[in-house]
Design a protein around this nucleic acid. Structure first.
Lengths: 147, 147
DNA sequence: TTATATGCAAATTATTTGCAGCGCA
DNA sequence: TGCGCTGCAAATAATTTGCATATAA
């Protein structure tokens, strides 16, 4: 599967809504795509500040919402009280396996689970549109340590 | 599977932590168990007010946390910005299939999915402790309506 | 008696909104 | 030259915390 040209997709998405690409939106997209870990809006804001001292919270929140609508970012809710974001650059949907101790997490995709989810939805007459699945446990590294 | 004697379980849990059963905690537990739908802390608070006008927000939040720790309540996060709670009265774990339009939801349990989740965790060296899985779609009733 | 629990209000945290001014199409 | 965009600050919303008082064991 090819990597998306996120910049182009975003610009086209914006155009369709009569919205514009701006330098801030461009920077936020680039910065999000560069992340190695899932970030909160606040964490992203802190990083963006280093490049653009004048950027505001509101712009970050508003842009993350737009990126999500455009299918370029995904919201992750690990029950921490704030939403984390990950770039969705290669159209590869995946779920998360999170260590409850150190927070380290693995992205995985299980086709059998996806099929069963589809089957469950159909069984109850629902048309499945999306899902969120997070597995919580302890990673081997954390289990190695004394409690 | 037997229904839990939640009152007893809670009292024992509290005792173990050197905490006490009180009339407020008892009322909150009873009221939660009576719910037909998943409630937010605020919704529960509103209902509790009718029985005990002097009850405070803090007590409700604090007690819901205790009930969750005691394994009597479960937190549900449907990405709405607030946490919903359901009583976990019969030890039957289940997941949720939620209609994104009307909010109606179905509780389901799929043993095959559970097994596969376990397998995924093992594959990555994690010891699975918990998971959250929510399927989002449109129910047949909502699809019947014109958009 | 004495540690724990409660209600209240203030504090926090995450996020959203209103608005005046700025800047691209 | 207008309409969307931005930063700021104030507004919300959900939840937590500090504290004086009340209460269970």
């Amino acid at each position: 599967m090819k990597e998306k040209d996120t910049q182009k997709i975003f610009t086209e998405y914006l155009a369709k809504q009569n919205l514009r690409m701006t330098s801030q939106r461009e920077l936020i997209l680039k910065t999000l795509c560069r992340q190695k870990k899932h970030v909160t809006a606040e964490q992203l804001y802190e990083q963006l500040k280093k490049t653009d001292k004048s950027i505001g919270h509101a712009t970050v929140y508003r842009t993350l919402k737009l990126l999500t609508e455009a299918g370029i970012a995904r919201e992750l809710n690990f029950g921490e009280g704030s939403i984390r974001y990950e770039p969705d650059t290669d159209n590869t949907h995946h779920d998360h396996l999170v260590c409850v101790q150190c927070g380290e997490n693995v992205e995985f995709f299980d086709e059998d689970i996806e099929k069963l989810q589809q089957a469950v939805a159909e069984k109850y007459g629902y048309e499945l549109m999306d899902h969120s699945m997070n597995l919580y446990g302890t990673c081997s590294k954390c289990r190695g340590k004394a409690d």
